[in-house]
Write a protein that binds this DNA or RNA. Structure first.
Lengths: 188, 188
DNA sequence: TACCATAAAGGACATTTGTCCTCCCAAAAA
DNA sequence: TTTTTGGGAGGACAAATGTCCTTTATGGTA
């Protein structure tokens, strides 16, 4: 559930360290600070250096739906790269977060000039696509109990790190339903 | 709900017609024929020339979940391009279908050598990502009635073209629930 | 013709999930 | 100290959805 991208992370780190690439700037955020806000203009692409953020979007019914949690190496702002430049989601720091930031123009140039970077970017997109596809189908064909069990397997420290409300928002259910399920699971 | 990609379609058509590009071959399929099968090896990328296919995956609970319907210019097989080469979904023709097919190796080469193609491909991926993100969040925060209304707005001929079972599989609900909702909507 | 799939439709009932409201507790603020 | 705030937990009821089963119609086929 916490998405990372080691290969991209190594390559960006390499680019930054080699000094050949001054286009990346580093930025720090503290818990619950917003890095991108739904509906606001986006002019850059971001890559996670450290920490964890949640990527969510507020639906017209007022509830939040968490798309993904991002960790080391994961990138965001890329969807807003091509067409309009309004963010379709909000990115909020969960703990202390450091990100690399690169202007859209520079990003596109890098994409054109650096074949390896281009390939890594495409792989990142494909990885996200695959993840989203399986997640959506799993979510809509399994019970809350199944989803919770799966989540705990993939990420045992779940409840220590992420609030109950966030877990519920990630699973697309209400907090009440989450509590009910946790209780009934512990009774067996 | 029926995904297309005009820009990619024009460009592929252009590549094929110009004769410079012989890597694309054309293939025909009839209704309910399978073009890709979940779990089987995939060695090519496909681009829709005409007709409509459904892209679905069978969950471990036995139900089908329809990811998307593809029309003109949409591509598939790209997720299997990078990592393993086992198809994670099944692609099945709904009506008469014609696709362009290109070997993985040729596709990757084209991606490297043709900047315009590269950019169109990236845009196609981003467009799919955006679509999946909003669809999933919408699906999990709205009633069946809302989802149906939205679907009919986007695609009025819905029920004439796609079977009830497919519509239900697309919405991630049972056929019974779909019928119930249709009836209750027509009563008002 | 008779038979057999398959899609569509819906009744009856069980289960799941959401809504609304209350309570508890601990940490921070007044 | 008292008050406020936010996370956690759960009772009671309503609404949404799934499960199971039956019926009807239709097109293909033995």
């Amino acid at each position: 559930m916490i998405r990372t991208n080691k290969e991209l992370f190594s390559y960006i780190t390499h680019l930054v360290r080699s000094g050949a690439e001054h286009k990346f700037t580093e930025h720090h955020f503290t818990p619950s600070q917003k890095i991108l806000v739904e509906g606001k203009k986006v002019f850059s692409v971001y890559i996670m250096k450290s920490g964890m953020v949640k990527c969510f979007l507020t639906t017209d019914t007022g509830s939040n739906f968490i798309q993904e949690f991002f960790g080391e190496g994961e990138l965001f702002g890329e969807i807003e790269l091509m067409d309009d430049c309004y963010s379709y989601c909000t990115i909020e720091a969960i703990d202390d977060v450091v990100v690399y930031k690169i202007q859209k123009g520079d990003f596109l140039q890098l994409l054109d000039e650096d074949k390896k970077f281009n390939r890594l970017f495409i792989e990142a997109l494909i990885s996200k696509l695959k993840y989203k596809a399986t997640r959506h189908s799993y979510n809509q064909s399994h019970t809350i109990e199944d989803k919770l069990t799966r989540l705990k397997m993939k990420f045992p420290a779940l409840e220590q790190v992420i609030s109950k409300q966030d877990i519920a928002d990630y699973l697309g259910i209400t907090l009440r339903a989450l509590n009910r399920t946790i209780r009934s699971m512990s009774e067996n």
